[in-house]
Design a protein around this nucleic acid. Sequence first.
DNA 1: GCTGAAATGTTGTTTAAACAACATTTCTAA
DNA 2: TTAGAAATGTTGTTTAAACAACATTTCAGC
Lengths: 196, 196
Amino acid sequence: MTTKKNDPRVMRTRQLLQDSFTSLIREKDFKDITVRDITEKATVNRATFYAHFADKYELLDFTITNTFRDYLRQRLNCHDVFNQESITNILLIMCDYHKDLSSRCQRSYQSLRPIIESKIIEELQNVIFHLLLKGNKNTSFLDDDRELLKTISTLLSWSIYGAAYTWNNDGRKISAEELISKTIPIIMNGVGKLIS
Amino acid sequence: MTTKKNDPRVMRTRQLLQDSFTSLIREKDFKDITVRDITEKATVNRATFYAHFADKYELLDFTITNTFRDYLRQRLNCHDVFNQESITNILLIMCDYHKDLSSRCQRSYQSLRPIIESKIIEELQNVIFHLLLKGNKNTSFLDDDRELLKTISTLLSWSIYGAAYTWNNDGRKISAEELISKTIPIIMNGVGKLIS
DNA sequence: GCTGAAATGTTGTTTAAACAACATTTCTAA
DNA sequence: TTAGAAATGTTGTTTAAACAACATTTCAGC
């Protein structure tokens, strides 16, 4: 079966599985959720599950990537360019995201973290990279330039993710705004000269 | 295609079509709703629509019957027997139903009425018949008895439907409770001696 | 450790949904 | 009135979902 991912049936099935999973993750720890649970709630045959995902980890990846992408899109202005404002916004978004996730997945937040971390950062890295690209549209594009932007977006995505995660995990002892005012100068200092 | 109606795919498709239709009926008059509109909103192929329903009228029937049945089930105690209390309750339910329907289908209420009327009454008739049956469980069942109960439920369903419809359509100049106190005595008088 | 039950994957077959293409009817506006 | 656009039905083919049956792994309780 060479599942065309634009077939309405395929999209529906994936959506049903994703919805079912998001609903289950509110109630149970990830490790206690079985494939059977997921497919039953989704009213999808178990064999169909395996036609789409290797196992529940792959569905987790899919779900996390999707919802996080939506989350970003919703709160990011599509005309945004890389600057202090947009990076500040992203840090704020990441703070909220961790806050939301940890409350929405009470049962699983800790066990999920190591699994989803890389996906989130990857997505974040991508967004930042594209912000950087847009800011440099007119300049000629040597491979070296691209590499530099890649490096910057890697560093930024990890540091922003890490800052927000640590803030949330340590109990949010300061406000998100305080965190931002402490963190952003350092971040922007680091890349300031490179991209001006 | 001999559509087994307990296949999850079949149930899902019908539900999607029904939901799409209920949503469209809020916005548009029934006559302005095309089969294409329905299937597009439901993300179901148009040909699939015709595998389930002959035309939009059949979907209307299906939807009305379904939602009305749910509406009744929700507000009717399953232990109810035929008596003044349960019939009063049914009249009240029918008043609410007409009130709801006329507000929810502003665009179509008048054009829908003649089409759905028979389905609603049929359903109502069924419910009342079963209430009557339960009340007479122990007595021996001659065909003549059944016929009498049939006749009673026909009369009651039409009169109750008619009373509620007229009340709603004339602008609800009295409260539902007033309507009930005026109507129920007459209704119960008519059948009173027959079923005691 | 051993056993049986539950969960996980896998496979072949059947069935319903998607799709494209077509003929027919109904509307609409020039 | 008439041309063409849109909506309605219909059909044959392709594809994905459902299903049942199976082997394999995991795991809890004895």
